[in-house]
């Protein structure tokens, strides 16, 4: 009987322990640095001299909401060095720079930490589709490009130094009511990095942060989910 009670107790504790981490992971995500108008959910992985690209698999949005108190919502992958070079590629809805406003999902890239933004007006993304996002800078060939779904974006020659960092984030400009990651159920990413030979590898880890009410939840060493509004 005691063995049966111990078994029941163990099963109950095991069930409780498996239920807890998901909640605690969300609650314990660090606060991202942000200003008064930008909110983030960020996953930062490693860096090395051999990194030439950052990529992620995700699913484009099927529903989203840009409210009357907002600017935009985007998700992107990043590559940057320690000398002030930043290459970002992703997709967004709402306000843009070279496209003033869109009600669809459009691919875009930025250089120099947002100083140059190019939104691609005619390249409307397919909704609810398996989506590859990639930023790539190949030092040996100076080949710089961004790929979002089937669309290639070419920023021209953009020389980045080493080492390079792998990074991804969801971003909204709002204080309320704009979905991050398409909808309240969240958007899951799987992160990869490209070596200097162009081969892709899954991330081995990621350090996460988010700004409430937006959230990020670690799924595995190379995967995470973002969401909220």
């Amino acid at each position: 009987m005691k063995r049966l009670l111990r078994l029941i107790t163990a099963v109950v504790l095991a069930a409780a322990s498996t239920a807890l981490p998901q909640t605690s992971t969300v609650a314990l995500a660090a606060e991202c640095q942000h200003d008064s108008v930008h909110y983030y959910a960020q996953a930062l992985s490693g860096y090395s001299n051999s990194v030439s690209g950052t990529g992620a698999w995700t699913t484009s949005w099927s529903t989203w909401y840009v409210s009357t108190s907002n600017g935009f919502s985007d998700v992107a992958v990043w590559l940057w060095d320690d000398s002030g070079h930043f290459l970002e590629g992703g997709f967004y809805t709402g306000a843009g720079v070279t496209v003033p406003w869109t009600n669809s999902m459009l691919p875009y890239y930025t250089l120099d930490n947002g100083q140059h933004e190019h939104d691609y007006a005619g390249d409307v993304l397919t909704t609810n589709a398996n989506t590859w996002m990639e930023v790539h800078d190949q030092p040996s060939t100076y080949s710089t490009y961004v790929k979002i779904q089937s669309f290639y974006l070419y920023p021209g020659t953009y020389t980045m130094l080493t080492p390079r960092h792998n990074f991804s984030q969801g971003e909204v400009a709002t204080n309320t009511s704009t979905w991050m990651g398409g909808s309240g159920s969240g958007e899951t990413f799987s992160g990869l990095w490209s070596d200097s030979g162009g081969s892709w590898h899954y991330w081995g880890f990621h350090n996460d942060c988010a700004n409430t009410p937006y959230w990020i939840k670690s799924v595995s060493s190379d995967s995470w989910t973002i969401g909220g509004r």
Partner: peptide
């Protein structure tokens, strides 16, 4: 009228990687 909304960012400022200060147009918005 297709869209009529507040624009908290003023200009889109897609660029705040960890450890980087905001651009002036974002910080002063």
């Amino acid at each position: 009228v297709l869209v009529d909304e507040e624009l908290p960012a003023g200009a889109v400022d897609r660029g705040h990687v960890p450890g980087q200060p905001p651009q002036a147009y974002s910080g002063e918005f």
